[in-house]
Simulated scan of single mutants.
Amino acid sequence: MIDLYYWPTPNGHKASIMLEESGLDYRVHPINILKGDQFSPEFLEISPNNRIPAIVDQTGPNGDAFPIFESGAILMYLAEKSGCLLPETPAERFQVLQWLFFQVGNVGPMFGQCGHFLGYAPEPVPYAMKRYQDETRRLYGVMDGVLGERPYLAGDSYSIADVATYPWLMPRVRQLHEMTIEDFPRLHDWVTRIAARPAVQRGSAVLADVMKIGDPTDEAREALFGQRQMDRR
């Protein structure tokens, strides 16, 4: 059994979608990041960086409970455990891993900053808005280019690289980028195909009723962006 510590953010969806794709048994523990659950001592024992998602595999590598934080590491672990969506041959495997790291190091941070400065910053910061929107547009173009050569980010087969990247291009996330995905037709086609997968639909639906942040309350803004993020633990 996998215990999933989760809130329905793009990074959270990576784990829930992968659990659905893998067929592994799991149970969900909501971590309400709008109310500060991520700072609880119990959660920090599992995820010391106070970020979701995190998992605890109750039958880990040595048969003991095994916690993992960081969404990219979670995807790799679940792929290894289930034997799916991560090839075994070195060339194919590293093709997938480089696109997984592309998401972790580029898509997530840049799209996240774009969404923050365009949608949640308390006052406009024109330089930051342009900087991160331009970089988001550039990354759309990178993906659109490679998807003109192959059906999935890392090649001919769906993989954890696609699982990692799709949640950052879901409609509710894209709207914060203030761009038109139809300007990137191959990327748009890829998003449509991934969204149609039953496991993706199930994973995206986990806690769907609480997924929208909207206009954050003072409590939510402090939990998400305030000094509590900076306090030493």
Rank of each mutant, 00 (worst) to 15 (best):
K14T: 04
L34A: 00
K212H: 06
F111G: 14
K14V: 03
P126E: 04
G203D: 09
V206W: 09
R197Y: 11
C114M: 02
R131Q: 13
L207Q: 12
V96G: 05
V107I: 15
P185N: 03
F102H: 13
M143R: 08
R186I: 02
S82V: 00
S22N: 08
P67M: 01
Y5G: 02
I17A: 04
A73N: 09
G226I: 04
F111P: 03
K81L: 11
P216A: 11
R93L: 12
D209N: 14
R93M: 07
G23Y: 00
A164L: 07
I52S: 02
L85I: 07
D218K: 15
M129D: 06
P41K: 00
R131K: 15
P8S: 13
R174Y: 10
T180G: 12
L24F: 11
P67K: 03
F225V: 12
S204A: 15
T59Y: 10
P53N: 12
V163R: 09
K35A: 15
K81N: 11
L19I: 03
Q229C: 14
N11E: 08
D134T: 07
E20A: 12
F66G: 05
M230E: 13
D134H: 06
M110T: 14
W190A: 00
P167F: 07
P90F: 13
A121M: 03
A196L: 07
D144M: 11
L86F: 06
N62M: 06
D144I: 05
M211N: 13
V56M: 07
P124E: 03
L187I: 09
A220D: 12
N32W: 05
Y140L: 02
A220V: 10
F184R: 05
D215N: 14
D37V: 05
M179N: 06
L176A: 13
V163A: 07
H29A: 00
L153N: 12
G214R: 07
H177D: 09
A91W: 08
L169G: 01
F111Y: 14
E70I: 08
P48H: 14
R221V: 01
F111R: 06
S40V: 05
Q113G: 01
L19H: 03
G203Y: 09
N11Q: 08
P198H: 12
Y77F: 00
V173L: 03
E45F: 05
L147R: 10
L44S: 11
P185M: 00
R233Y: 14
V163E: 02
L19K: 02
P185K: 01
A73Q: 08
M1T: 10
N32E: 11
H29K: 11
E21D: 06
E123M: 07
S71L: 09
G60M: 00
L169H: 12
T180Y: 10
L153S: 05
A161F: 13
D231S: 11
A73T: 02
N62S: 12
A195E: 05
W190K: 03
Q98D: 02
W168Q: 04
W190N: 08
P67L: 00
S159A: 06
P48C: 12
M179Q: 13
V56F: 09
V56R: 14
E219P: 02
R221D: 05
A73R: 08
I55M: 01
D3M: 06
G108L: 09
K35D: 10
P109R: 04
G112E: 04
C84K: 15
R221Q: 08
Q201H: 09
V206E: 13
G23F: 02
L187E: 02
